[in-house]
């Protein structure tokens, strides 16, 4: 039961959506882009969110496509997590998506919603960060393509009204050896204590984390430790811990101390698993 009224729009084109947003905003009202709706509905119900209108992106063809085109995988922002995992096109992203919330919810959650919502974990970003994916943003001047790693800094840096329409990943990234580990407090269906995604490209490990801080991240420093030459795994991990320790999240899912322990463990396993695929 959402305790307030709002308007519902389902535009057919990106332009229509963008203009609508602008128009509603111009009337002094709050519009919100709407993907799967889970977060918007649950937060509204709990009085943590208020809007005057929702703009459902599921009627826009670009937002709903998932296809390979010219050696690029294109995923629309309104594609659901289960569509991604069922498609098998991007195994690491599929595996990551299949561990967010539960399967039935994955049938509604969209990748755009996961990235643009308020949830701090945004785990679908991890594969995108390490696979150098690009975001297609629709704004005042039409579409532009930006590196996810550039536009995501703690949150997706969009201008008001801008729409994340698609995510593009070069197909060579889809076949690199990868590791995905999600650790939780005690249950499988839970927020992460720590989620790690990593790939190995030309003997170079790329790695990103969620649950360690209040946003997902990929860190140049951590990757330089991991790929450092003439260092034992233990040394690498100790350096990472030393670098990261003071910034580790401390909440009801787990204390920062315990999260650090889990990080250490998970890094050990991740490195071992990636070594095997040398």
């Amino acid at each position: 039961m959402i305790p307030f009224k709002f308007e519902y729009y389902k535009p057919d084109t990106l332009k229509e959506a963008f203009d609508l947003y602008d128009y509603i905003k111009g009337q002094g009202k709050t519009p919100l882009y709407y993907g799967g709706g889970s977060e918007i509905i649950t937060m509204s119900r709990a009085n943590n969110l208020h809007m005057d209108a929702v703009i459902d992106l599921k009627g826009i063809p670009e937002c709903c496509r998932i296809e390979m085109l010219d050696n690029k995988l294109i995923i629309g922002s309104a594609v659901t997590l289960s569509q991604i995992s069922e498609s098998g096109l991007f195994p690491l992203l599929g595996q990551t998506a299949a561990r967010i919330a539960d399967h039935t919810v994955q049938c509604r959650l969209t990748i755009g919603g996961n990235i643009c919502g308020t949830i701090i974990y945004k785990e679908t970003l991890l594969p995108l960060m390490i696979c150098e994916s690009r975001a297609v943003i629709y704004g005042k001047n039409g579409k532009r393509e930006v590196q996810i790693n550039q536009i995501f800094d703690k949150k997706l840096r969009l201008m008001p009204g801008e729409i994340l329409s698609e995510i593009i990943t070069d197909s060579n990234y889809l076949s690199f050896p990868y590791v995905h580990v999600k650790k939780t407090k005690s249950d499988k269906i839970a927020y992460p204590l720590l989620t790690v995604a990593a790939i190995k490209k030309d003997n170079n490990i790329k790695i990103a984390f969620s649950g360690l801080e209040n946003h997902p991240f990929r860190s140049r420093e951590i990757e330089s430790f991991i790929n450092g030459e003439n260092m034992s795994d233990d040394d690498k991990i100790n350096r990472i811990i030393g670098f990261q320790q003071s910034k580790v999240l401390d909440d009801a899912e787990g204390s920062s101390c315990y999260r650090t322990f889990v990080l250490k463990n998970t890094l050990e396993n991740t490195l071992k698993m990636l070594e095997k695929v040398k």
Partner: peptide
Amino acid sequence: CENGDCGACTVIVDGWSVKSCIVLTVE
């Protein structure tokens, strides 16, 4: 739970299971 956590409200939409508490009717 009306929060998408328990699944007691699950129905099938276009062949897929969906928690009807976190879907708008107009959708």
